[in-house]
């Protein structure tokens, strides 16, 4: 078992409040989350079409999700990896089946600074082996860029990588402008693969 795989515990993995599940234990699916966050993480997989491509997603990206990602990535609260894809691992595995899983790359500098790869780790604890075979040509911080500058971010395949299945699942945590995901999608398609997109949370502007 992975050391960060959520297990039965006395405090909510998300908000750290002590868990008292005696009264409502029959309603609780996960024994590591409080009632509030348990409810929040019971979303089912949905689909949205962006630029004629169907993307699977679980949540609308709003402030609760944003604060979760902020704590996980910026404060390096690593055990939170159990709140990302783990509660949806069954749905995720249904999407993946026996296809190769490719992740949208993040900045190398940031990953080194953090000392862990947030997306890869959150998949790893679900028992999903992901391939980090794409790389950004420009490694600067996404947040510091404007929309126009983000359009200029390019990706390429790493110099060596294992053989992929014909159908690949491309995974990212949050889809905001959609640029990174779309460019990676184009790149994989140009290599002759059929791509299935999947993200955990999606910006509300795509859902209007």
């Amino acid at each position: 078992m992975h050391p960060y795989t959520p297990k039965r515990q006395c405090h909510c993995l998300w908000c750290l409040v002590p868990l008292d599940k005696q009264d409502f234990s029959f309603l609780i699916r996960h024994d590591y989350l409080c009632c509030e966050h348990e409810q929040f993480l019971t979303s089912k997989v949905k689909q949205v079409s962006i630029k004629d491509r169907d993307i699977n997603y679980f949540f609308e990206y709003e402030h609760t999700m944003a604060s979760l990602f902020f704590r996980y990535k910026e404060h390096k609260d690593i055990p939170l990896c159990g709140c990302i894809f783990y509660p949806h691992r069954k749905d995720l595995k249904t999407i993946i089946q026996d296809r190769s899983v490719v992740i949208v790359p993040s900045s190398v500098t940031k990953t080194q600074l953090r000392g862990f790869h947030p997306l890869q780790l959150s998949l790893e604890i679900c028992g999903i082996k992901s391939l980090d075979i794409l790389e950004k040509i420009d490694n600067s911080d996404q947040k510091k860029k404007g929309k126009a500058q983000r359009n200029l971010t390019y990706f390429r395949m790493k110099s060596s990588y294992p053989t992929l299945t014909h159908e690949v699942v491309l995974i990212d945590d949050v889809l905001t402008t959609g640029n990174s995901l779309m460019r990676c999608w184009d790149l994989l398609e140009s290599q002759g693969h059929h791509v299935i997109g999947c993200v955990l949370a999606i910006n509300s502007s795509w859902l209007m």
Partner: peptide
């Protein structure tokens, strides 16, 4: 002091309550 509130990262014991 509860064990749920700690984790080890890069050899260091981190407290999740005051991590931020």
């Amino acid at each position: 002091n509860h064990k749920d509130l700690f984790f080890i990262h890069q050899g260091l014991r981190m407290c999740r309550v005051c991590l931020s």
